[in-house]
Lab assay of single mutants.
Amino acid sequence: SGVNQQQLQQLMDMGFTREHAMEALLNTSTMEQATEYLLTHP
Rank of each mutant, 00 (worst) to 15 (best):
S1P: 13
G2F: 11
V3A: 07
V3K: 06
V3N: 06
N4T: 08
N4I: 09
Q5W: 12
Q5S: 12
Q5V: 13
Q6H: 11
Q6D: 13
Q6V: 13
Q6W: 11
Q7A: 08
Q7K: 07
Q7G: 06
Q7S: 08
L8Q: 03
L8W: 04
L8A: 03
Q9D: 08
Q9L: 10
Q9F: 07
Q9K: 13
Q9Y: 07
Q10M: 10
Q10F: 13
M12F: 03
M12S: 03
D13P: 00
D13V: 05
D13I: 06
D13W: 05
M14G: 04
G15H: 04
F16W: 08
F16N: 04
F16A: 07
F16E: 03
R18N: 05
R18F: 09
R18M: 11
E19F: 11
E19W: 12
H20L: 15
H20F: 13
H20V: 11
A21K: 00
A21P: 00
M22S: 08
M22G: 04
E23Q: 09
E23V: 08
E23R: 07
E23M: 09
E23A: 07
A24C: 03
A24D: 00
L25V: 04
L25W: 04
L26H: 08
L26G: 05
L26R: 10
L26F: 07
L26N: 08
N27Y: 07
N27R: 11
N27G: 04
N27F: 08
N27K: 12
T28P: 01
S29R: 09
T30G: 05
M31C: 08
E32P: 03
E32G: 04
Q33F: 03
Q33W: 03
Q33I: 02
A34V: 02
T35H: 14
T35Y: 15
T35P: 09
T35V: 15
E36L: 08
E36F: 04
E36K: 06
L38T: 02
L38G: 02
L38E: 03
T40M: 12
T40E: 10
T40Y: 09
H41S: 07
H41F: 12
P42R: 13
P42S: 15
